[in-house]
Design a protein around this nucleic acid. Structure first.
Lengths: 144, 144
DNA sequence: TTGCATTGAATGCACACGCATGTACTGTCC
DNA sequence: GGACAGTACATGCGTGTGCATTCAATGCAA
């Protein structure tokens, strides 16, 4: 009645559980640490980072929301609200896109840029701690 | 003003983004497919699976909630409510633990066992599609 | 031009989550 | 025995999420 997984399936499940553990450890720690120290969620930081990277491409800290969407693993509605939060916090500015007035262009403010620069070391540190080693367990705090 | 990541940091970030993409693809698809076809969330399935595995260990589909907790990447409160949902759906039974009356022993019902067996092929199929290949993008539906 | 399907983004709603707290029970130390 | 810290689980609360829907703007066709 209870069929066993084939070896291939068992390997896939093991891989999945490893991925779940790593993701949980990193995401949980990132959310808590970035939230406590910089008022940013994991995805908020991710969006700021994309805006900073967008700078290298077009010279301005600006991106269409529709261009941002595929890179952040959130629903359209969640992204919309996340941007609203960032705007409320004064980290980004929403402006109508001139070439397509349905679209919204995000601009990183100086405060947004600064917040990102401040948060980045902690972000990298958490990744180092949760992904660098092999164990991938728990939700440890990187430093006092 | 904008310091670049060291090569080590850049690699870590790349690894993190890859992990995020894989996790999002698999988790999103699992939740939607298992939800649509079996009324189960990803974590609900995971809990049923641990109960089934627990069978091999002690002969009964029973586990302490406190033993289950470390294997599921949820807060204690989220797990408590998840179990309440499973119980409401008739898939598990909650009983007081005799040796430690603070504890709760979960028992898989026949319906729970059956639901798990029905859902498992789809679960494995989704993992195969989202983790098996290298791309790790999007939220595709495994089959009609 | 008008009409209509499509796209980009915002919003109502239900729901699952984490944090903080509450309640019940255990073990220890006096 | 009684007091007390610690553990196991449940629950109130605020919040972030996805789905479905809505509204505005675009592109295309008649």
């Amino acid at each position: 009645m209870a069929e066993l997984d084939s070896p291939a399936e068992a390997g896939l499940v093991a891989q999945w559980r490893e991925l779940l553990a790593r993701h949980a450890a990193a995401a949980c720690t990132l959310d808590r640490e970035l939230g406590d120290r910089f008022g940013l969620g994991m995805s908020e930081f991710e969006v700021l980072e994309r805006l900073v990277e967008g700078c290298a491409a077009n010279g301005a800290h600006a991106l269409r929301v529709s261009d941002l969407a595929p890179t952040v693993h959130l629903s359209q509605s969640a992204l919309s609200r996340l941007i609203a939060r960032l705007e409320k916090a004064g980290l980004v500015t929403r402006a109508m896109c001139e070439s397509d007035r349905r679209g919204i262009v995000l601009t990183l403010t100086d405060a947004g840029r600064e917040r990102y620069e401040q948060a980045r070391p902690l972000h990298r540190e958490v990744l180092e701690l949760t992904l660098g080693g092999e164990p991938a367990k728990g939700c440890e705090v990187p430093s006092g």
